[in-house]
Amino acid sequence: NMTTNERRVIVPADPTLWTQEHVRQWLEWAIKEYSLMEIDTSFFQNMDGKELCKMNKEDFLRATTLYNTEVLLSHLSYLRES
């Protein structure tokens, strides 16, 4: 059983600085953390943090459901504000 610390993704605090690998790690973490289903992860495959942060609700909806979109966008905006 993993502790919270072991599951925590170590990525730069500012999502606009993320590499493609960071985006992948964040997505994998969010899927596990929030038990998200039905995400087309290939949609995010060649995307870095700058591109991710430019995405709006409609962009996310092409890859996943409305619920997942709201979870991911709210977590992303939380990270950008902190």
Rank of each mutant, 00 (worst) to 15 (best):
28 E>H: 05
41 T>Y: 14
63 A>C: 10
13 A>R: 13
42 S>A: 11
17 L>N: 05
66 L>I: 14
76 L>T: 00
73 L>F: 09
42 S>W: 05
37 M>S: 10
32 K>W: 07
63 A>N: 15
72 L>Q: 00
28 E>M: 07
38 E>W: 04
61 L>R: 09
39 I>C: 09
53 C>W: 03
17 L>W: 06
21 E>P: 02
48 D>I: 04
7 R>C: 10
57 K>M: 12
27 L>D: 03
27 L>K: 02
36 L>A: 01
13 A>F: 10
66 L>S: 13
48 D>S: 12
17 L>H: 14
35 S>V: 03
40 D>K: 05
42 S>R: 08
70 E>A: 02
43 F>C: 04
13 A>P: 15
19 T>C: 05
14 D>V: 04
24 R>F: 11
39 I>H: 02
25 Q>C: 13
20 Q>M: 13
56 N>T: 14
16 T>C: 04
58 E>M: 07
73 L>W: 13
11 V>L: 15
47 M>V: 09
41 T>F: 15
35 S>D: 12
74 S>I: 02
24 R>W: 14
22 H>P: 00
43 F>K: 08
2 M>H: 15
27 L>E: 01
37 M>H: 11
74 S>K: 15
47 M>T: 04
57 K>T: 09
49 G>M: 00
1 N>S: 03
68 N>G: 08
78 Y>V: 15
34 Y>N: 15
38 E>D: 03
31 I>E: 11
40 D>W: 01
62 R>G: 12
13 A>I: 13
25 Q>I: 03
16 T>W: 11
41 T>H: 08
29 W>F: 04
10 I>P: 15
12 P>Y: 06
13 A>E: 15
26 W>T: 00
28 E>P: 01
25 Q>K: 13
69 T>V: 09
19 T>P: 00
46 N>L: 07
35 S>T: 12
19 T>I: 03
74 S>P: 03
45 Q>D: 05
5 N>C: 13
2 M>I: 10
37 M>I: 07
52 L>E: 00
34 Y>W: 13
69 T>F: 01
35 S>N: 13
21 E>C: 04
20 Q>I: 03
14 D>E: 14
8 R>N: 15
10 I>G: 15
39 I>T: 07
54 K>Y: 04
61 L>G: 06
11 V>H: 11
81 E>D: 09
64 T>V: 02
47 M>P: 02
71 V>G: 02
73 L>S: 09
67 Y>E: 15
15 P>G: 00
53 C>I: 11
53 C>G: 08
56 N>H: 15
46 N>A: 10
57 K>N: 10
16 T>Y: 07
25 Q>Y: 08
9 V>P: 13
32 K>I: 07
59 D>E: 07
57 K>Q: 13
8 R>P: 11
25 Q>R: 12
69 T>W: 00
53 C>A: 06
55 M>L: 13
19 T>E: 02
24 R>T: 10
61 L>A: 08
3 T>L: 10
20 Q>V: 08
4 T>M: 10
5 N>G: 11
36 L>C: 01
75 H>L: 03
17 L>V: 13
63 A>L: 13
74 S>Q: 03
9 V>A: 15
10 I>N: 15
23 V>M: 01
69 T>I: 02
7 R>L: 15
35 S>F: 04
50 K>M: 09
34 Y>M: 07
76 L>K: 01
29 W>E: 15
47 M>Q: 03
73 L>C: 10
63 A>E: 06
47 M>W: 03
45 Q>H: 10
33 E>W: 04
70 E>C: 03
31 I>Q: 10
31 I>M: 14
59 D>W: 09
74 S>F: 04
6 E>H: 04
52 L>M: 05
51 E>K: 12
7 R>H: 05
58 E>A: 15
74 S>W: 02
62 R>D: 04
7 R>Y: 08
53 C>E: 03
4 T>I: 13
10 I>M: 12
67 Y>C: 10
60 F>M: 05
70 E>N: 08
29 W>M: 15
38 E>T: 08
19 T>W: 01
32 K>L: 07
6 E>A: 07
9 V>R: 15
41 T>E: 10
14 D>L: 03
10 I>V: 13
44 F>S: 03
68 N>P: 02
40 D>S: 06
39 I>R: 00
61 L>N: 04
64 T>L: 05
47 M>H: 05
16 T>V: 10
62 R>L: 12
1 N>G: 06
64 T>N: 03
73 L>R: 08
34 Y>T: 02
10 I>A: 15
22 H>E: 14
56 N>S: 11
68 N>C: 05
26 W>Q: 01
53 C>N: 06
29 W>N: 15
47 M>Y: 14
35 S>R: 07
4 T>D: 13
45 Q>E: 13
35 S>E: 09
15 P>F: 01
28 E>W: 05
68 N>V: 04
69 T>Y: 05
57 K>V: 12
6 E>T: 12
23 V>H: 08
71 V>T: 08
27 L>R: 01
51 E>M: 09
16 T>S: 09
10 I>W: 06
33 E>L: 00
65 T>Y: 00
36 L>I: 14
33 E>M: 04
4 T>G: 10
14 D>R: 02
28 E>A: 12
31 I>N: 02
60 F>Q: 00
50 K>P: 13
27 L>A: 06
74 S>M: 11
34 Y>I: 00
42 S>N: 15
7 R>E: 11
54 K>W: 04
7 R>M: 09
11 V>C: 15
56 N>F: 03
24 R>V: 14
2 M>V: 02
25 Q>T: 11
76 L>E: 01
7 R>G: 08
70 E>L: 03
59 D>R: 04
7 R>P: 11
40 D>N: 15
37 M>V: 14
19 T>S: 09
38 E>P: 09
16 T>Q: 05
60 F>T: 00
51 E>H: 14
2 M>D: 02
44 F>W: 08
64 T>K: 01
12 P>L: 04
50 K>G: 10
30 A>H: 07
53 C>T: 11
47 M>A: 07
40 D>M: 02
45 Q>P: 04
51 E>D: 04
6 E>Q: 07
17 L>K: 09
11 V>Q: 11
57 K>I: 07
33 E>N: 04
33 E>P: 00
25 Q>S: 05
2 M>T: 06
45 Q>Y: 12
37 M>A: 12
42 S>T: 13
56 N>R: 06
55 M>V: 04
61 L>F: 05
54 K>Q: 10
34 Y>A: 05
64 T>E: 01
61 L>V: 08
16 T>P: 05
42 S>K: 06
61 L>C: 04
28 E>K: 14
6 E>K: 13
27 L>T: 04
47 M>S: 03
50 K>A: 12
32 K>V: 07
71 V>E: 04
4 T>H: 08
51 E>C: 06
25 Q>W: 05
68 N>Q: 07
45 Q>M: 13
19 T>R: 08
8 R>W: 03
60 F>K: 01
44 F>V: 06
21 E>R: 11
64 T>D: 02
71 V>W: 11
58 E>H: 05
41 T>G: 08
63 A>Q: 11
71 V>M: 10
71 V>C: 14
47 M>N: 05
32 K>P: 04
43 F>V: 08
32 K>A: 12
61 L>Y: 01
36 L>T: 03
16 T>H: 02
47 M>L: 12
28 E>T: 12
61 L>D: 03
31 I>H: 11
42 S>I: 10
24 R>Q: 13
5 N>H: 10
40 D>V: 01
37 M>D: 13
43 F>W: 12
7 R>V: 10
49 G>P: 03
69 T>Q: 01
44 F>N: 01
66 L>T: 09
67 Y>V: 14
15 P>C: 04
45 Q>G: 11
71 V>F: 06
16 T>K: 10
82 S>P: 08
63 A>T: 09
37 M>P: 10
2 M>F: 14
47 M>K: 07
24 R>L: 12
21 E>I: 03
